[in-house]
Design a protein around this nucleic acid. Structure first.
Lengths: 197, 197
DNA sequence: TTATTATTCGAATGATGGGTCGAATATTAA
DNA sequence: TTAATATTCGACCCATCATTCGAATAATAA
């Protein structure tokens, strides 16, 4: 009857494994992380990992899904109609930066891993939906901001790529001190980005 | 005595191999490109590759070096003292974009591969010097531009990360039509980036 | 206590893929 | 034509994994 505790413990062990995986990924890079090493870091035998995950693939699919989900959930509450979509846009980027700074290993993985992943399992990986939502949200904010003359007018997709690049570049380039960047992004956007032509 | 032709032919074959490697890298991603497949695409037996390159590693070190070198050389002539460092900055980004569009596979590799590479061979890889030069050049232009009120004043390293991110984002995100981006970058910078606070 | 279920892991399996060998086969020089 | 020299490659070798097995060992239920 204490199946409840069992489940919780199992869940906890899965999380432990995921943390280990993340840490190995960060050290060695996705492609050079071995199950052995992940197991070792989690204090398990390699075979035990397979008691918790069907495959290596399932491990980082889980990471991707949980990661994107929590990223989305962290952002969600900030998506509201305000008088200033530009401000909302900035607030969201700040929140994103904050989350990244909170758990570097995870989010570096989220943002870089998909690049080097083999085209994935035929189907849309589940985490894509969150990425798409985030994309669309930001896109919409940009368009609204343009309407209100809070951003210069230009192809919104391109602008998203550009401003997304700003985020990506400031947060992830260089092995710098981090932490600073939360505000740095806001400062950059305020200082550098015009409101209209 | 016709050693000259020999050398040329050998060089040509090396280039063929490199092209094949690039094409496989693009299809499968660095880590999933096999020597077999590269050989196949170049119409050679796997063993033959080793007649031209010491190792897989040497192949993409060659790519990295040649690539960065040509990138640098393509840019070099545009680095001149002008009245407008901001304009020079933009011109260089345009030229970079142009080169990338000219040979996508190569430059995607240049910009993404180092990320997923295992910390490399202990020593600074030779291509780093070109990357550093480019970095310093852009950094200096940004600082000069700030001095002349052509950019708002802010930590120049951060600004470089941000504007580098703009470039990266606009050029590499999405499997879009490309080509547009050469001008798009200029337009974005002119439209969105202030000259001073 | 005993049957049942949950965990764990050492050892084996199998596939993949980088790198090597030695024997061909061209090419060129003598 | 013959002895180098340059190229090419099929067949191996071997290390590195992901993944699976089967046998323990612990926990829980009966």
């Amino acid at each position: 009857m204490i199946t409840e505790r069992k489940k919780t413990e199992r869940e906890a062990r899965k999380k432990l494994i995921i943390q280990s995986a993340l840490s190995v990924f960060k050290e060695k890079g996705l492609e050079h992380a071995t199950m052995d090493e992940i197991a070792q870091k989690a204090d398990f035998g390699k075979a035990t990992l397979y008691y918790y995950f069907k495959s290596k693939d399932e491990i980082f699919n889980t990471i991707l899904f949980d990661g994107w989900q929590s990223l989305w959930e962290g952002i969600e509450e900030y998506i509201v109609q305000t008088e200033s979509p530009r401000q909302t846009f900035i607030v969201i980027l700040k929140k994103l930066a904050e989350m990244v700074n909170e758990n570097r290993a995870l989010y570096e993985f989220l943002f870089f891993a998909p690049q080097s992943l083999p085209a994935s399992e035929g189907q849309e990986p589940g985490w894509k939906q969150f990425q798409v939502r985030l994309y669309n949200t930001l896109l919409q904010l940009i368009e609204e901001a343009m309407d209100k003359n809070e951003f210069p007018k230009m192809d919104s997709h391109l602008v998203l790529k550009a401003l997304g690049g700003v985020f990506h570049g400031m947060i992830f380039w260089g092995a710098d001190r981090e932490k600073i960047t939360e505000n740095a992004i806001e400062i950059f956007l305020e200082k550098f980005i015009k409101t209209h032509d």
